[in-house]
Design a protein around this nucleic acid. Structure first.
Length: 427
RNA sequence: GGAGAAAUACCCAAGUGGUUGAAGGGGAUGGUCUUGAAAACCAUUAGAGGGUGCAAGCCCUGCUAGAGUUCGAAUCUCUAUUUCUCCGCCA
């Protein structure tokens, strides 16, 4: 959530920042409501103060005196006068909230405005692999190697799903285990969260209200629950409504969960296979930091995500996203994109983002400053580390051999019982 | 799924509808004593959100959350959430 005070004191600045994300917001009606709100608060509270004062003046021993009756009548009048104003105030505050909760985070000053076309590749790692033979795509390879069963997945579930099978399942599990081991080495705390979350969690993370239709909702559950679209949603809510001590920060977490997404209407033929599905596996990192340490944490997360790619020996690039392509809740996002040879393009395997205080304001996630003893909002950051659904195809394709076999990256072999190469199944 | 009980501050806990924003412990912090520590003793230790003011301060809200009754609610009523106990069902 954006700082209401900032909107009040410098609406132009907020407007211009959101403009870079393609949001042309007119703050005039909001500012009017905020002024009206203050007016009403003063009116209501002075009546309450008067009523409290009168009530206190009633003697504790009950007497049927005339004065007392007068007070009863007067206090009742005050309460009645307040009814309408309080209802109006409540409505106004709801409207203000609704409006502000829908707004995206402000992008950092250094970001270019606009959408994807203004994303900037800031680094690449490894050379594009050259193949001296006609390459196969991952769908063909997974089929011939017996790693993925798309047909039976369609049978038991539906489109947009797949089954990891045999060595395919082992490879997927090896990748996840490799990530987990790396994060543990770096001192991150491993969290296995519930996959069903309540509305408040989605609101704090910033998924709601904007993306309410993009997640899977459970039918007939009260209170309503949805399947997490990313572990970030769970991790960033761990300390909702808490005041942390400064010494605890930064807090560093990671989770493995499947991610459940509607991906409504986004299916394209180029995204066949496991490039885009309703459910994919991801290891996610989240940090809570002090307000002046989130830039440092951002560098750390980016470095960690990159180091996983480097250890896997994959060719990838890092893109600094333009404001309009950053996540809704985020002030800055860098994507790590892996080369998919058959598609001839780079696909996102990790988004590294700094949310600054946007999520913390929504979820009242704070810490106490040691010197001033005042509470401040934490900064929250998240980074995939990593999502496997693009990584698995990338490994299969980048490591494919002329005979149709696939070499297993060395770092994964210990997690696969030492298997170093997967051969096509003989028919 | 059914039946009951509970929710008070960092923790434990008292609490009668009216100076209760809340007794009492513990813990923490500071001090006295001590060569140092422990013990003992003394002191401090209620946060949070909002309004107003240059400020000191004052005002509103606040005892899980939301409604209600009342001149007045931690205290009475209703609803939700969570926890515990018992019963049933079940991997």
């Amino acid at each position: 959530m954006l700082d209401l005070n900032l909107i009040k004191t410098n609406p132009q600045k907020v407007h211009d920042a959101l403009m870079k994300k393609g949001w042309d917001v007119d703050f005039e009606p909001l500012l009017k409501k905020m002024d009206k709100r203050l007016e009403l608060i003063q009116e209501v509270e002075s009546r309450k103060a008067e009523a409290n004062r009168l009530s206190k003046s009633v003697p504790q021993v009950k007497k049927e005196g005339g004065d007392v009756q007068q007070i009863f009548i007067k206090v009742k009048e005050l309460a009645k006068d307040n009814e309408k104003a309080e209802a109006e105030l409540k409505k106004l505050e709801d409207e203000i909230n609704e409006f502000v909760l829908a707004l995206p985070n402000m992008p950092d000053d250094d970001l270019l405005g606009g959408e994807k076309e203004n994303n900037k590749v800031i680094s690449t790692f490894n050379k594009k692999p050259e193949f001296g033979f006609k390459i196969k795509d991952h769908v063909q390879l997974c089929e011939s190697l017996g790693l993925i069963d798309y047909e039976r997945a369609a049978k038991i579930s539906g489109r947009g799903t797949w089954i990891y099978k045999g060595l395919g399942a082992q490879l997927e599990w090896a990748i996840l285990n490799f990530f987990i081991q790396e994060h543990l080495k770096d001192g991150y705390t491993f969290i296995l969260p519930p996959h069903l979350l309540n509305y408040e969690s989605g609101l704090t993370a910033g998924q709601f209200p904007k993306f309410e239709n993009d997640v899977f909702w459970l039918k007939d559950q009260e209170p309503k629950k949805f399947l997490l679209p990313t572990a970030e949603t769970a991790l960033v809510n761990l300390h909702r409504n808490e005041i942390l001590s400064e010494d605890e920060l930064p807090k560093k977490y990671f989770s493995y969960t499947p991610c459940y997404r509607m991906e409504a209407g986004s299916y394209r033929t180029e995204e066949r296979g496991m490039i885009r599905g309703y459910q994919f596996n991801k290891v996610e990192m989240v940090q809570y930091t002090k307000e002046d340490e989130s830039d440092k944490a951002f560098e750390e997360l980016l470095h960690k995500a990159e180091s996983l790619m480097q250890k896997l020996g994959l060719h990838y690039q890092v893109s600094k996203l333009a404001a309009g392509d950053c996540s809704h809740s985020m002030a800055r996002t860098y994507d790590i994109e892996v080369w998919i040879p058959s598609m001839g393009i780079y696909k996102e395997v990790s988004s590294v983002s700094n949310g600054r205080d946007y999520q913390a304001r929504r979820g009242m996630i704070r810490y106490r400053d040691k010197e001033t003893k005042k509470t401040k909002y934490c900064h929250t950051l998240n980074a995939s580390g990593l999502a496997t659904s693009r990584l698995f195809p990338a490994i299969i394709e980048q490591y494919q051999q002329e005979d149709g076999s696939v070499v297993i990256p060395e770092v994964l072999r210990p997690f696969m019982g030492g298997i170093s190469i997967i051969h096509p199944i003989k028919k």
